[in-house]
Write a protein that binds this DNA or RNA. Structure first.
Lengths: 125, 125, 125, 125
DNA sequence: GTGGTCTAGACCACG
DNA sequence: GTGGTCTAGACCACT
């Protein structure tokens, strides 16, 4: 069963998107693996304190990306393979890194300075 | 006159916010300096292909942060000093770096690997 | 539910402001009381023939003055107490009376004549 | 020459409208009479510290209501008769009084209470 | 021409 | 269905 206890919601980004990203990051990190069971819509909505419709939207998007499979009952399971995992990893990592680089470079900060900043903030997050 | 030719709009973030961030990053990088003239709402809206009101919103937020001087019937100018510049730099850099670190760490990627990725992508952006 | 059937809009004052004043006057007169339900933006906008966003602006200003309670997905309700009501009453009455006096005095009309005019027009409005 | 020294501009109402109303109230009070000379656009704009275009707009509206006459030079004169004066008086007084009554009645305040308030505030304005 | 404001309509998250 | 936000266009006062 996938755990959502490390998911802390902020109110700047859409909730369905935060849930989606949380799961995708779990896939990349290996805490979410093939055949893992997802909590039911009802349970997760209660756990996170958000509307069931919002959960439903997240699950639907996972389904559209062919990452989960909903069986006849209410249970849903991750449907992963190495190709999908690599694709997500590349997508997420590239996005996070290049977005940051793009923003940093616009401010005229050098690569060396960026690495220093990264070292500085790494353990504070 | 502040140049906006390097600003490419995406459709994920609010336009007014992208314009705001573009100017703030320019302040940090030094391409936007004190007393620089801002293009009028009409000119910039035509240049970027957005509504004048969207520009107005960006400018208004800059004024609320006391970064520009703006009076009816006259042009608008940047109103900066070193204290303001340092404050913005800290705000922007911290935000970009820590957001990235947070996302990367959730995926179980180490600091060393991150630095390698940063080196790899730095010149591609 | 607050009734808006006595609200007739003119086109000299901003609509959002007229709606705001209508509700405030209702608060003073006692026709709008604590916990009263406000019509939704859609309903009221259809009723008054204006854009939902205009209603939204009025409601937002009421919320900023802490006169209504409003959460996403739920109805909005008046949030009043005697202190707030007295404050609004003082604010509105003073404004209406002193504006009128100021205008009348500029025309060289005496207090006695004004009272006569007031008696004359009172039942015609 | 019509004096504008008692005109204090607020920034809530359009300036051209405030100037127009100031003159009309002067007509009603008798301080502005037939054949009175108006200051030139330039002089009045300097005196009030507003743009000549704004003065021009006020004068144009007076002309459209046939209340002033501009001679070949830059001088303008009031063009009044008793019928016009009575019409303006009725228009202004009725408007001020009935607007106030309308607002006050909406708050459930009685005629007697209104007269007391009027007495109270009369000398404070 | 300049900046400022109001109204309008579409879209989003949420219950 | 609810409220909240973003973009859009028209209009106004003013230089």
């Amino acid at each position: 069963m996938i755990s959502f206890e490390n998911l802390i919601l902020d109110d700047k980004t859409p909730i369905y998107s935060q849930i989606l990203m949380y799961i995708k990051r779990g896939i990349v990190s290996g805490t979410v693996t093939n055949n893992d069971e997802l909590p039911s819509r009802r349970v997760l909505s209660a756990l996170l304190g958000v509307n069931p419709n919002t959960i439903q939207k997240s699950y639907k998007m996972l389904e559209e990306e062919d990452l989960i499979e909903s069986h006849s009952g209410t249970k849903s399971y991750m449907k992963l393979d190495n190709v999908k995992i690599e694709k997500i990893k590349k997508e997420l990592v590239e996005c996070d890194i290049t977005d940051m680089i793009s923003a940093i470079k616009q401010m005229g900060i050098s690569k060396e300075e960026t690495i220093l900043l990264l070292e500085k903030y790494w353990n504070e997050v």
